[in-house]
């Protein structure tokens, strides 16, 4: 378990370093997916399978895919095809692919050694997370709702399309 943890941690550090050093946004995002996946594996080895699943579904799955889509849509134009071809060169995907392969191998090892090896902490399951969230920490959930409301209102106001005659001095 320790070896798996350190390997996943190394992958996380390397991929995050790549995220902040890549000049091309799409390359950086690929590494970001890898970084989030390795974090999920770390959570899993620490005994939090639910958090690991959330990490994969929400961060790696939903949010980053959204990023990729937005960035691709923003670049609509004549040279899109050419750029797509450039992106599909091995240079772009070989790094993330190797790191993901390491993670995948680790994942297989973890799954194969069920029941968990000695030394692995006791897992915190969905039930315990839910009981904590909606029992002891229910006020926290309420506060998080207010936080989302604040974000929503701010985004609505700042992102609203300017209608004619509404705000004249539009730049």
């Amino acid at each position: 378990m320790t070896l798996i943890y350190y390997l996943a941690a190394a992958v996380a550090v390397i991929s995050t370093a790549m995220v902040i050093t890549r000049a091309n946004a799409v390359h950086a995002l690929l590494y970001m997916v890898v970084s989030l996946l390795s974090l999920a594996l770390i959570f899993f080895t620490l005994g939090a399978p639910f958090v690991a699943a959330l990490e994969v579904i929400i961060y790696a799955g939903a949010i980053v895919v959204l990023f990729v889509f937005v960035i691709m849509m923003l670049n609509l134009g004549a040279e899109v095809t050419a750029r797509e071809r450039r992106w599909l060169q091995p240079k772009a995907w070989i790094g993330p692919a190797i790191l993901t392969a390491i993670l995948f191998a680790e994942f297989l090892v973890v799954v194969a050694t069920e029941p968990p090896a000695a030394g692995a902490p006791a897992g915190v399951g969905v039930k315990r997370v839910g009981a904590a969230l909606y029992g002891r920490y229910v006020l926290g959930v309420e506060l998080a709702a207010m936080l989302l409301l604040a974000g929503l209102v701010g985004a609505f106001h700042l992102g609203r399309r300017v209608s004619s005659g509404d705000e004249e001095d539009e730049s």
Partner: peptide
Amino acid sequence: FISFFLGLEILSVSLYG
């Protein structure tokens, strides 16, 4: 820490707007 952070973020996010 949870209420500290959530309170601070409610404040900050509203202030961005």
